[in-house]
Measured scan of single mutants.
Amino acid sequence: SASLEDVKTAVLGLLVILQTKLYTLPASHATRVYEMLVSHIQLHYKHSYTLPIASSIRLQAFDFLLLLRADSLHRLGLPNKDGVVRFSPYCVCDYMEPERGSEKKTSGPLSPPTGPPGPAPAGPAVRLGSVPYSLLFRVLLQCLKQESDWKVLKLVLGRLPESLRYKVLIFTSPCSVDQLCSALCSMLSGPKTLERLRGAPEGF
């Protein structure tokens, strides 16, 4: 439990870093931090981490990651405290083949985003970082199938509809809506759902 406290501190630090690096160059920093966060949550489900502190780590990670939004130009952003989304000039939600690297070039400044813009690109060529939603999407499927803490599952179920409104997140990387529907149906009809959940409301 003591070591998990250190892990929790590290994860919180990564969330803060991602919130900053999403809007700064090099964009590969945001890509790497995002991948680290998603990989860490995957390990929770792989090794069945069920301690309360592990659940709190997942809760905080999902609470942040499910706020990711994308505009029509595929640029990622996060809402501010007033709910207004600021889109990044440097990070996009497109999935890119590994051989192309985590970044790609664009020939010049991008068109203005639909929300308040981030800082304008400084040079004639900007390297865009790929932060594909499919990585998070796979972890969300694991959550629906394996999550043991009701608070975490409730958060994910509550945030998913709003995330799905931003269709560009889903359609720019390999996210299977069929698998999502299947996971939701299995969660509702499967007898093991109630068996594994802690803290579920009576009558769920």
Rank of each mutant, 00 (worst) to 15 (best):
S1R: 03
A2Y: 08
A2T: 14
S3C: 13
V11S: 06
V11Y: 07
V11C: 08
G13C: 00
L14N: 02
L14H: 01
L15P: 10
L15V: 09
L15T: 14
V16A: 15
I17W: 01
Q19G: 07
K21C: 04
L22M: 09
P26D: 05
A27D: 05
M36T: 07
L37K: 00
K46C: 12
K46E: 14
S48F: 11
Y49T: 03
Y49G: 01
L51G: 07
S56G: 11
I57H: 00
I57G: 00
R58N: 00
L67M: 11
L68Q: 05
R69D: 02
L76Q: 03
P79R: 08
V84E: 12
R86Q: 09
F87W: 08
F87I: 06
S88F: 01
C91H: 11
V92C: 11
D94E: 08
Y95D: 14
E97D: 13
E99P: 15
S102Q: 13
S107D: 14
S111L: 12
G115F: 10
G118Q: 15
A125V: 12
A125S: 15
L128V: 14
G129E: 15
G129S: 10
S130M: 09
V131A: 09
P132E: 05
L136A: 11
V139W: 01
L140W: 03
Q142E: 12
K145M: 13
Q146F: 13
Q146P: 01
K151H: 15
K151C: 12
L153C: 02
L153V: 07
L155N: 11
L157A: 02
G158C: 10
P161A: 14
S163I: 15
S163P: 06
L164S: 00
Y166E: 07
F171E: 12
T172W: 03
S173R: 03
S173V: 05
P174K: 07
C175N: 06
C175P: 03
S176N: 11
D178G: 11
D178A: 08
D178R: 05
Q179M: 13
L180E: 01
S182N: 09
L184P: 01
L184S: 00
C185S: 05
S189A: 13
G190A: 11
G190L: 09
P191Q: 15
P191G: 13
E195M: 07
E195P: 06
R196N: 10
L197T: 03
G199M: 09
P201K: 08
F204E: 03
